[in-house]
Design a protein around this nucleic acid. Structure first.
Lengths: 256, 256
DNA sequence: CGCGATTTGTGCACGTCTTCACAAGCGCCT
DNA sequence: AGGCGCTTGTGAAGACGTGCACAAATCGCG
C-alpha cells in the first residue's frame, strides 16, 4: 500500500526521508516494539523473527509485520529482523536519535515521582527543568535538579531547546500551565491532570489519567461479576500458551 | 481481543440494567464523560446538551450521542441530558456504585505518588493495601496506610474483597507480582512497569508506560519538525482541519 | 546447484469506529 | 391547539484497523 521507498536510488534527498504518514495505531505500538528489542539486544539476540518479537511485545505477529512494513523492508525472509538495525530504524522514525529535553511542571506527589523516575534517560529523554508555581517548592532539589518557578519558563526555554512539556499539576492549574508552555514554543504536552486541555492547532496533547484507567478496569470487573454464573470456570488455565490472548486489547503475551 | 461475546440471550438476564456489551472504544470514553459531568454538576448545571458535554469532554458531539445511546435513552429531545441522572447511569454501567478496593504493589517513587494521590477516593476507588517486597520498606506509613510485605497478599485478600491490583514495581519484579495477584483472585491489573505481563484468560490488564507516551509525542514532534523543512507536497498541510483534528485522537477542546 | 525449510511482506476480507445527515420527539410560545 | 426551534437518537457511508493466508525471497545443506 505504502509506496515503499527504494533503498537504492531515491533520486532526491540522500538522507532517510521522513515518513509521510504512519498509521496512528502503528505509531502507538512502535515504542513497545522498541522496548522489546532492547530487551532482546541485552540478552544477546542478534536477530528475531516476527513471531518472537510479537510475543515479546504482546501483539499479533501479522500486525507486527504490517507495522514494520510501513517503515520499510528491514527484515530478511527466512531469517527475521536484525535487532540492532531495527532498533536503529525505529528510533530514527520516532525521532529518538537526539535526546529530547522535557520540562516537568508540577512537583507535587506525582511530579516528584516523575522527576525521580530513572526510566526516561534510557528511553531518549532528559528532564531539563522542574517547575512549580508554589514559591515554597522553588529551590528544592530533586534528583540533582533544582525546582524553579513556573514563571521562569521563558528563561528555561531560552537555555534549552525544549519541545515537550509534562503537566503534573492539579486540574485547576493545568490549563494555565499549558498556555504558558505553548507560549514558549512547546508543541507536545503530556497531561497528567484530570481535565481537558485547550491548545492551538499543531500542538499535540496526550493524556494519562490514572482514575480513568481504573474505571475502565472497573467496568470489565463489573461485567465479569455479572457473568459469574457460567461454566467457563476453566480453573487453572495458567501457563499462557504462545497462542494465548485473552484480556482486552491492551496486552497479553509471554513475558520476557 | 476478549473472547466474551454474548449477543444472544444468555438466559441469565439480570434484574436491573442488563449489561449491554458496549463497544470498547465507548467504555474508554465513559470515564471522561463522567468526569466532565461531575464538573458540570459542581457548577450548578442541571442539564447539558450533547454539544456542551462533548466540548467539555473533548470529543465529537455525534460520537458522544452514539456512546450514550448504547446505554439507553437517558436524554430528552429538545432539552438535553439530566446531569444527575446521567452520572448515575454511567456510574452504574462502570460498576462504580460500590467503592472498589485496590491493592497497590510497589512503594517506590511512583508507588509513593499513587498512594498519596487523593484523586481515587472521589472517583470510586479506595486503596486497601500497600505492599512491597523490600523488607526495609515494610512498616512505613504512607497517607495513613502501613506498607505490608507482598507475601501478605493472601491475608490482605482475605480481609478485603479486592479485585483490582496496581503494579508499580520495577519491570523485573512485575511478572512475579502479577502472578501473586492473580493467585489471590485479582482479575484486573493496572501495570505501570514497562513490560508485558502474561496472565491467564479472564484477567484484564491495562498498561501505562510514561516513556511510551513521551515517545509517541516524540514521533509527532519529529514529524512536525521535518515538515517545516520539506517541500509541501499537497500544499501546506497545516491548514485548518474541520472539527479540530489536531494530531492524535487524544483531545482538543474547551477546558473548564 | 538446486531443493526444502523458513520467514517476510502484503492483498484481501472482515470487523470496528467515526462522522454525517436527518427524522422523530420535546418544550415553549403565540 | 398548533407551529417552531432545538436536541436526541440512529441509519448509512466511509475511514480505519486487524488478521488470515499465501506468494516471494532468503538461507542452509546435501
Amino acid at each position: 500500500m505504502s509506496q515503499h521507498r527504494h533503498p537504492g536510488a531515491p533520486g532526491r534527498a540522500g538522507a532517510v526521508p521522513a515518513l509521510p504518514d504512519l498509521p496512528e495505531a502503528t505509531v502507538a505500538r512502535l515504542p513497545e516494539y522498541l522496548r522489546a528489542l532492547h530487551n532482546l539486544a541485552d540478552t544477546g539476540h542478534e536477530t528475531v523473527s516476527s513471531e518472537g518479537l510479537s510475543a515479546a511485545a504482546g501483539v499479533n505477529s501479522a500486525k507486527l509485520r504490517k507495522d514494520l512494513s510501513h517503515l520499510g523492508s528491514y527484515g530478511t525472509r527466512g531469517v527475521g529482523y536484525d535487532v540492532t538495525l531495527l532498533i536503529e530504524q525505529i528510533e530514527n522514525v520516532l525521532g529518538l536519535t537526539q535526546r529530547r529535553a522535557v520540562a516537568l511542571v508540577g512537583v507535587g506527589n506525582l511530579g516528584h515521582a516523575l522527576a525521580g523516575y530513572n526510566g526516561f534517560a534510557g528511553r531518549g529523554f532528559r528532564i531539563a527543568a522542574l517547575l512549580d508555581a508554589d514559591p515554597s517548592r522553588v529551590g528544592e532539589e530533586i534528583n540533582g535538579l533544582v525546582v524553579r518557578h513556573v514563571d521562569d519558563l521563558p528563561t528555561v526555554a531560552a537555555e534549552e531547546s525544549l519541545a515537550i512539556g509534562v503537566i503534573a499539576t492539579p486540574a485547576a492549574a493545568a490549563q494555565q500551565v499549558a498556555d504558558q508552555l505553548v507560549a514558549v514554543g512547546v508543541t507536545s504536552i503530556l497531561n497528567f491532570a484530570p481535565c481537558v486541555l485547550s491548545v492551538p492547532e499543531g500542538v499535540d496533547v496526550r493524556k494519562v489519567d490514572l482514575a480513568i484507567e481504573l474505571q475502565i478496569l472497573s467496568f470489565h470487573e463489573h461485567r465479569k461479576a455479572s457473568l459469574t454464573a457460567l461454566p467457563a470456570t476453566g480453573g487453572s488455565a495458567l501457563t499462557a500458551l504462545p497462542g494465548g490472548f485473552a484480556a482486552t486489547d491492551t496486552q497479553e503475551a509471554i513475558g520476557t
